[in-house]
């Protein structure tokens, strides 16, 4: 009896979560699908975003994402490798690094926005720019990315490390050819989490990459990302709901595409490594 109640309750929980997701998706698809067309993707917004398309917004979003990942991936992998392979276990500087990362991971994104505005935009003189926005996002996704990669590397069995030493591999070679490929699922998970958080971010970007909806000409230009565009259209621009739904649908499709792309890239890259 208790078992049956228990299984019903957990099933209901699962069904509730799926229902919520389906509801959101149905709402966005049914309201947004009518707005989507090739012209919507390749023209500039007009009349404060109510009419026209989202081409510059889409380009800005990709710019910010590429800058954020280009800054966060090498740095994050480096820190994760150091923490799991080279640092003295849970002592001294490594322990402090770990605590710092956990604190940073819990900070609300608006705080990163204020920091990014003060540090990248004002102190470093980048102004409102895609570069400032991308670097702010990099700071924001680093803690989670590092922690995910680190735990993935730690989970690799010590047999692999000993095997690599027995073959006379250097530590660097062992990391590149054995440990990183073995930690592939974790790195991918970190990447997907990072992409999701970065593409959906509004608060951290409003005051760093900014509000300008012109086609960016360089990374030093200000550019409005999709999330900021959706927020402005739904909360600030009267009559912007239709375009907001259209943009939201584009954002969802974009995140799905990017996650698929990340998966295939990571898979390909590491498969070659392992087979070499």
């Amino acid at each position: 009896m208790i078992d049956r109640v228990f299984s019903t309750v957990v099933f209901a929980a699962a069904a509730l979560v799926v229902a919520a997701l389906v509801w959101v998706l149905t709402d966005v698809v049914s309201e947004g699908a009518a707005r989507i067309s090739w012209a919507f993707l390749v023209t500039e917004p007009r009349d404060a975003g109510r009419a026209g398309g989202i081409a510059p917004v889409l380009v800005s979003t990709l710019w910010v994402l590429v800058i954020a990942l280009a800054a966060a991936l090498p740095l994050g992998l480096g820190v994760a490798i150091w923490l799991s392979e080279f640092a003295p276990k849970q002592r001294g500087f490594a322990a402090y690094t770990g605590i710092t990362l956990d604190v940073l991971a819990g900070i609300p994104s608006i705080v990163y926005g204020l920091f990014g505005n003060a540090f990248f935009s004002v102190y470093m003189g980048l102004g409102y720019s895609l570069l400032a926005g991308g670097l702010t996002l990099a700071c924001m996704i680093l803690p989670v990315f590092i922690r995910t990669c680190e735990s993935g590397l730690r989970q690799v069995s010590d047999d692999w490390r000993q095997g690599a030493w027995a073959l006379g591999m250097t530590r660097a070679a062992a990391v590149c050819h054995v440990l990183l490929p073995a930690a592939r699922p974790a790195i991918l998970a970190g990447l997907v989490l990072g992409i999701g958080r970065a593409t959906a971010e509004t608060a951290a970007l409003l005051f760093t990459s900014g509000y300008v909806d012109r086609m960016p000409e360089s990374p030093l230009d200000s550019g409005r990302v999709l999330a900021v565009h959706i927020f402005d259209l739904s909360m600030n621009v009267t009559g912007g709901d239709g375009a907001a739904y259209g943009s939201a649908l584009v954002l969802i499709v974009l995140i799905v595409l990017l996650n698929g792309l990340a998966q295939s890239l990571v898979d390909n890259w590491f498969k070659r490594r392992i087979s070499q």
Binding site: Y128, L206, F207, G210, Y211, V212, R214, D221, S222, D232
Partner: peptide, 15 residues
């Protein structure tokens, strides 16, 4: 204004 003066760039930010 930018259309009429192509060399000018005007960045509008909120807050």
């Amino acid at each position: 204004y930018e259309q009429q003066h192509p060399q000018v760039r005007i960045d509008v930010q909120t807050g």
